[in-house]
Nucleic acid binder design. Sequence first.
DNA 1: CGAGCAACCTGCATGC
DNA 2: TGCATGCAGGTTGCTC
Length: 271
Amino acid sequence: MPELPEVETTRRGIEPLVANKVVAQVLIYNGSLRWPVPQELISLLPGQRIGGVGRRSKYLLFAFSSGTMIVHLGMTGHLRVDSMQTEKRKHDHVEIIFTDGTALRYNDPRRFGSILWTLADPLQHVRLSALGPEPFDRQFNASYIHKLSRNRKVAVKPFLMDAHVVVGVGNIYASEALYRARIAPARPAGKVSKAAYERLIQAVTIILSEAIAAGGTTIKDFANSEGKPGYFTQELRVYGRAGQKCKACDTLVKQIRLGQRSTFYCSNCQK
DNA sequence: CGAGCAACCTGCATGC
DNA sequence: TGCATGCAGGTTGCTC
């Protein structure tokens, strides 16, 4: 699934295609996602207009007049806007048809994503209320993460991927950011210096903004709302490069498992 | 409380 | 060709 740059790319692609459109019909073909898709969408949404599409963490927020539809793409979720005449694809689970004849379609082979509905402030929703700061927020700085990490024994990579610490840093960009910050991914989070966290904050910010500018990374599943791949793959320095030479020192890139996730690093450049 | 891990599900690459 | 295995961009919720 998409990491934050892919979600943001989706948001930017989808918003102009759905903003101000009025819902004609909602069809749920398979409501068994991470949580059951609320059936009340079928009766609630028709007649309502979409305001805009926001984002908090990897959740997309579709503002309707009476509430907010919260969409998470999980590992393999995609959104696209089609003509309603266009043939449905395998794994299209939910379809929101607009009065102009177009349709917003949610496709997700693994069904790890979710579609939620709330009448209240979406930021107060139980899935969003305890999330850490956005990576581009000033709150996400070296003092904050250094302080939060003290006495934590967990490896710094899973620590960085913990949405209570900071949102939006997934498995690919966590390896990339640690490489650029020259921090070994298995080091206990509590043993990483403030200066090193300073470099990490910089690295995360730069990598995520470059990835957003490139339209996201494509490994295999992600395509943006126009169906085109992202172009960040060629920028990856360690992810997926096990056994190949580090681009800085020719040491072979290593692959280990941390928190059940594949992790790539250079044992010479990262300490 | 923190740490570690199983689980959710399908598709694809690999090896026998 | 078929079948088994392992892996995949996320997150929750369980154990200890």
